[in-house]
Design a protein around this nucleic acid. Structure first.
Lengths: 339, 339
DNA sequence: AACGATACCGGCAACGTTACCGATATTTTA
DNA sequence: TAAAATATCGGTAACGTTGCCGGTATCGTT
């Protein structure tokens, strides 16, 4: 069925080439102590047999693997893609290759088991270090360096990169307030994530600062997905005194607002102002005003930090804060009087 | 700096628990031959020490790894993301985890060296099998099963999944021809890829079938990127007798057409009809008429095939053809007379 | 001519894990 | 009650690779 030449090993190469295993290994690792004729000969045998070194065996024995690991529960959502783009870029510029590990689904394995698994991936196994996206635990028993992106809790054990979620939320709110909105709905993120909590706090504090009351009815409980964004929007808009603007915790939730609005015949921004958070690819096309948290750069910077750590360099700071920026497009409008 | 508990091994666990290494291994792999008290005790020690099994060592010794590998030169472009989404979904539904391998850049390592590397990844190393996206070689010396997506050449050695590129190109062309266009520009893909050649052949044959001459000037040499798409468009539009419609080999190239048109003040579709290929995420927002090749499904199906192979099942067919479909949006218009 | 320096190469051990076999204690069977 | 079956565990040998040590030739030096 397949053309399989069962597992060619370094021994096979040595036998066929008529040299020792050590010599083959030396050729493979480009050590100095081999005559050029032997080198050439061994190389030709390697090519002939189609030999490739077994990564598992190699990484068990030697220490430098030139591989960076990356762990994410799910790679099929915009945030993940943006992070990966940034990581990819930094990797392309480096001597390292990248290994992305995923279970495909957050719910697939329990949290503990999942964390367990990915620590295995690192724990002086395959990679020289790893980037972990949105980890839920703070403790890793590993020798290899770790950098986290948008971690659950700020953790002193290893460096992390995250956006200024609080400030970003404040900026978004101030913008809406300046436009004259006073009833502003909020769609929250997953409650267990710090990013979500920081944004919620920004929402609350911005209102407090201008002396507006906080109506708990206006805070809908989301989870960063479009589906839940839809539900939250329906809740908010069916209130007796519905909001004139909605601040969604992320752009995917904001897409839910768009969907519901369209169904209800509400125009954005004429009838409803919407602001998001993240600035994912799609937001540009939807002309969504949002808070850019430079996800791409977060991935890029995290990778650079990790590579520094792997190379034994010291870091200036343990937490790298990525400044957010309000991107004004066309989904918000001045609020004129009621209705 | 980091809290490192240096490399806890199975030996450490055994010593602390007061049992043999074998017993710990049995507990880890949930074998039957262990009393429940011992099991519990060992498990508690494992937890206490924060032990996790070394993947490299394990996969060197045992055969089932529950890991699917995926190899792509670059993960930061829309096609790759769509494939990954499909793969991710299939993985989420399976018992397997996913390991995506990339160098971050096609040009980073020479082709041979790159192929070398990723065969290593499989070659009875870490994974049970692998999905290879757009491989350039047809020969892999490996024991583990392989499925390729959009391969360079149709290869009998292992199954592959690819779209009906020829038919899709024909459909696109027929649509433009029916709209009355006779001078249709073409932006080709990377010449070494079959997909690109099949689309070009579709372009040529469609013209031939209706008896239109093939003007080689109208065929611009692209490489599936937006940047080159821009250059090609400029070439095409600066011809003495410019095309009234452009068929771009993929959507990213089509985005180049959009960019140039906007700069030149040309309206799409009023002044220029554009059709693409791929139907990536962005195309929807650009209202680009295009040929959907169901990239997501390609990833999904490829993964399912691979898992079947890993489980020792036989496949019905070696090449799985994904039917394309013309998606009509708003980037094409009837052609009325000249200029 | 005798010595040390050098170039090149082979042998052995080790990495951490699992498969296999065999050993002991306990229970079941005839 | 003796033999056999079973449950539970330990010891040892691999898996394929690289690091280290040491062993030959060959060469240069005096």
């Amino acid at each position: 069925m397949r053309k399989t030449r069962k597992a060619v090993t370094i021994q096979d190469v040595a036998r066929v080439a008529g040299v020792s295993v050590s010599t083959v290994s030396r050729v493979l690792n480009e050590k100095a102590d081999v005559s050029s004729e032997t080198q050439e000969h061994v190389r030709s045998v390697i090519k002939e047999l189609g030999y490739t070194t077994n990564l598992a065996a190699r990484s068990m024995r030697s220490y430098k693997k030139n591989l960076v690991g990356m762990v994410m529960p799910d790679i099929a959502y915009p945030f993940a893609f943006e992070v990966m783009r940034g990581v990819n870029q930094a990797i392309a510029e480096s001597e390292f290759d990248l290994l992305v590990y995923t279970t495909g689904d957050v719910r697939k394995s329990g949290r503990a088991s999942h964390e367990q698994k990915y620590v295995s991936l690192l724990n002086n196994s395959i990679t020289d270090g790893a980037i972990i996206v949105a980890p839920v635990t703070g403790e890793f028993s590993t020798d290899a360096p770790i950098v986290s992106i948008d971690p659950l809790m700020s953790n002193p054990n290893y460096p992390s990169v995250h956006a200024t979620n609080y400030q970003g939320a404040m900026d978004a709110m101030n913008y809406l307030l300046e436009l004259g909105h006073t009833r502003i709905g909020f769609i929250s993120g997953r409650a267990e994530l710090v990013s979500a909590n920081r944004r919620l706090k920004g929402y609350r504090d911005a209102l407090k600062k201008v002396g507006l009351p906080i109506d708990e009815e206006l805070i809908a409980c989301g989870d960063y997905t479009t589906d839940t964004g839809v539900i939250c929007t329906q809740e908010l808009l069916s209130l007796d005194n519905p909001p004139t603007a909605i601040f969604a915790s992320n752009d995917q939730a904001a897409m839910g607002v768009f969907q519901v609005s369209q169904k209800l015949g509400l125009r954005i921004p004429e009838d409803l102002s919407v602001i998001g958070f993240d600035n994912i690819m799609e937001s540009r096309y939807m002309k969504l005003t949002t808070v850019d948290q430079f996800i791409y750069q977060m991935g890029f910077v995290a990778t650079q930090l990790l590579i520094k750590l792997i190379n034994g360099e010291e870091l200036d700071t343990q937490t790298y804060k990525m400044q957010t920026q309000l991107i004004i497009r066309e989904s918000c409008q001045k609020f004129h009087g009621s209705t």
